[in-house]
Design a protein around this nucleic acid. Structure first.
Length: 423
DNA sequence: AGTCCACAGGAAGGGCAGGCGA
DNA sequence: TCGCCTGCCCTTCCTGTGGACT
């Protein structure tokens, strides 16, 4: 048996430069009074400009308070329009009231976009059972068995279940709509409990592609969440910033700028909150007591940059090699071309395959097939790192034309990250 | 009008890792 | 331990596409 090696740690010498920095950080007056109020998971007391949707959803789900079956609801709206927030807000209120009425109501929430959480039929059911307090192994059991156990768990006592499935389109795209058929038909098999389904999606065309039987039972009621305009975003930001900062911490124009930038991104409140939070963090790091408009500009760049760099870093080696091939073919890293601004030329799938094969042979990677490369290129398009368009070049074939979708500084950052892997 | 090209993209299935139950 | 189940990543095979060329 191998004995674990025990290392005796000797007291370390203080690091003067860090010590001083941390001391200064702790003694400085903080900009944030409540940073969490600028995160998407924060639940505010009131939700501005969504009163109508709150009431509508409340009216639909109210029968649950009497232990009756409420209509299944389908909620549409683009990212950051308050779909999730309001579903949780109404659900929490229902739970509160149900405690007073002694009617047992349980709310289950799952987000199907969470990788390895609820992106397959098995994982969705496993997540729901976990919420109900029963641990399920992350693989290994037959789906039939999981369904049986889930039914038994729901039916183990007289109760009403409100099941909120966020990003439902992701699940259906991946696994098909049979799972929704099963979930919407569940009430027929349950003796003691009732289940009501709330499906949330930002894919407006999603419902049209469903099996008609699923469509009719899932979207008994539909709610559409319109995007926020700049004025509405400003109200939201004012409400949250009052909680997050001291009133003197914001330069005039900061909220307006965040709202304007987020309004350009289809009225995305999440984006507006991110911008304000990151601007605050940048101001804090600069040692200032006030957030300036220029911090918002820097925050926008940083929010984009962090996302893209994180995507590039977290990809498997093969995907990184493909992305690196695209960057190389776009002449990123070639200073001479940079000077002449001849970047962003068009590349085809075939070009990427050829360059990728060179990289594979240089770094000893087993090359993927063109079919797989095609899928991975489509994934990078989804991430927003590249932009692709399928075109036909006549007798020279049909292909995908690829160009970089990021600005110069972001491309350089990504190139730097991948350059460390493929030096 | 028919042929051709260079793929796109769907469907099916293989191989692997991991878990459960007999 | 073995057979069976799952998800995941990938390959193989196949059909479809659409504009240039003959």
């Amino acid at each position: 048996m191998i004995q674990p090696q025990i290392q005796i740690q000797t007291p370390q010498q203080p690091k003067p430069e860090l010590n001083q920095m941390f001391t200064e950080y702790l003694s400085a007056k903080p900009i944030f009074t409540n940073r969490a109020s600028l995160t998407t998971s924060f639940a505010p007391e009131t939700i501005p400009h969504r009163e109508e949707q709150v009431k509508a959803l409340g009216r639909i789900l109210a029968p649950l308070l009497k232990g009756e079956k409420a209509s299944n609801v389908f909620i549409y709206g683009k990212t950051g329009t308050g779909k999730t927030l309001i579903s949780k807000y109404v659900a929490a209120e229902l739970e509160n009231v149900s405690k007073q009425t002694k009617q047992k109501l349980k709310v289950l929430y799952v987000n199907c976009k969470m990788k390895r959480a609820a992106d397959t039929e098995y994982r969705l059911l496993a997540s729901l059972m976990k919420e109900l307090g029963k641990e399920v192994p992350f693989t290994g059991l037959p789906t039939d068995k999981i369904y049986q156990d889930f039914h038994a768990l729901l039916d183990s006592e007289k109760q009403t279940i409100l099941l909120i499935i966020d990003e439902i389109d992701v699940l259906v795209k991946k696994t098909g709509d049979e799972i929704l058929y099963n979930l919407t038909r569940m009430n027929q098999d349950l003796k003691n409990s009732r289940v009501c389904l709330v499906g949330i999606t930002n894919d407006l065309g999603f419902i049209n592609n469903l099996d008609p039987r699923v469509r009719s039972s899932l979207s008994e009621e539909e709610l559409v969440f319109p995007p926020y305009n700049a004025m509405q975003l400003m109200d939201i930001l004012r409400q949250r910033s009052a909680l997050a900062f001291d009133s003197s911490s914001l330069e005039a124009g900061v909220i307006e700028k965040c709202a304007a930038l987020a309004a350009q991104e289809h009225g995305d409140a999440r984006r507006a909150l991110d911008l304000l939070r990151v601007a605050g963090e940048l101001a804090e790091r600069s040692g200032l007591q006030k957030i300036l408009v220029e911090h918002v500009d820097n925050a926008q760049e940083k929010v984009d940059c962090d996302r893209v760099v994180e995507v590039a870093k977290s990809q498997p080696r093969q995907s990184q090699a493909i992305l690196f091939s695209i960057l190389k073919l776009s002449d990123v890293g070639s200073e001479q071309k940079n000077m002449k601004n001849e970047r962003l030329k068009e590349i085809q799938t075939g070009d990427v395959c050829d360059y990728y094969h060179k990289i594979c042979s240089r770094y000893g990677l087993k090359p993927l097939t063109q079919r797989r490369i095609s899928d991975l290129i489509a994934e990078f398009d989804l991430f927003g790192i590249i932009s692709t368009k399928v075109i036909s070049r006549g007798r020279y074939g049909r292909t995908r034309v690829i160009s970089l979708a990021l600005d110069e500084s972001l491309i350089k950052k990504v190139y730097g990250v991948l350059g460390e892997v493929f030096y």
